[in-house]
């Protein structure tokens, strides 16, 4: 059984702050991590490796420093790592990103393709299903649990708003995993040591099977028209009064608003 896991290196957005003077993002010193949903996906793949002796390949698209997340994946126990990087991929929106990844995945043989549901820097949840479409594979998103029958059939628990669904699909297929679904294992000490001697394959446009017009900025239907820090709504009145007076103020406002 062959599994490919797509992972993304993301800034830990919970650590990002806004410079209150300039209104810009402070990204200095913000650590880069494996996107949490993707890391749960890695654990799903590694648990199938434990049970079914699956071969696990991990792939990431990004700048050269994205190699770090591949080393981390090696230390967790994956068998092969590919860094997809090329100036032709730059400026890609989700559709162009999915085309580049699909181009690489056409060169790989797999029974199961795992992605995270969404990345914490964009929260779009689009790249997984878009890859599935380009490769003409069935998809199951919002995966909370997966069972494999050891042959070719997956039974998947999909989390939805007011409950869950149980779905069945044969490989090859694409699943997108929720971060809460699998608790990622720690890197082993020997794994960390070995991770730095393992080979990270570097793939560019020349190594993949995709139409160049679908890549990068030119292949992106969407553009950022403008980006801005969240505009602060003008604050209302602030009262620093004793509780009796405060209650009076609230009561009069609620009356004014016809709430009481």
């Amino acid at each position: 059984m062959n599994i490919v896991v797509c992972i993304k290196q993301v800034p830990d957005t919970t650590e990002i702050k806004i410079n209150p003077v300039t209104g810009t993002l402070i990204r200095d010193g913000v650590p880069s991590i494996i996107n949490p949903d993707d890391k749960a996906g890695l654990e799903l793949a590694l648990s199938l490796k434990d049970s079914f002796n699956a071969h696990v390949t991990v792939i990431t698209m990004g700048p050269p420093q994205a190699e770090d997340v591949l080393r981390e994946a090696y230390a967790m126990g994956v068998d092969r790592a590919i860094l997809l990087t090329d100036a032709k991929f730059a400026g890609a929106d989700t559709l162009a990103t999915s085309h580049a990844l699909a181009g690489a995945l056409r060169k790989l043989d797999f029974d199961l393709l795992v992605t995270g549901r969404q990345a914490i820097d964009g929260d779009t949840a689009q790249v997984g299903p878009q890859i599935a479409e380009h490769l003409d594979l069935p998809q199951v998103s919002y995966l909370e649990h997966l069972d494999f029958d050891g042959k070719k059939t997956f039974t998947i628990k999909r989390r939805i708003e007011d409950g869950y669904e149980m779905l069945q699909v044969d490989g090859p297929c694409v699943v997108t995993v929720l971060s809460g679904a699998y608790r990622p294992r720690y890197m082993s000490v020997s794994g960390i040591v070995e991770a730095y001697s393992k080979n990270v394959e570097i793939w560019g446009f020349a190594q993949i099977d995709v139409d160049e017009k679908d890549l990068g900025l030119n292949g992106s239907p969407t553009r950022v028209h403008k980006a801005f820090s969240r505009g602060v709504k003008s604050a209302g009145q602030l009262y620093e009064v004793d509780s009796t007076e405060a209650v009076g103020i609230i009561m009069s406002k609620l009356k004014e608003k016809f709430i009481i």
């Binding site: 028209h225 403008k226 980006a227």
Partner: peptide
Amino acid sequence: FGGNLMAT
């Protein structure tokens, strides 16, 4: 970026 930035 986790709500830190808005993009149009």
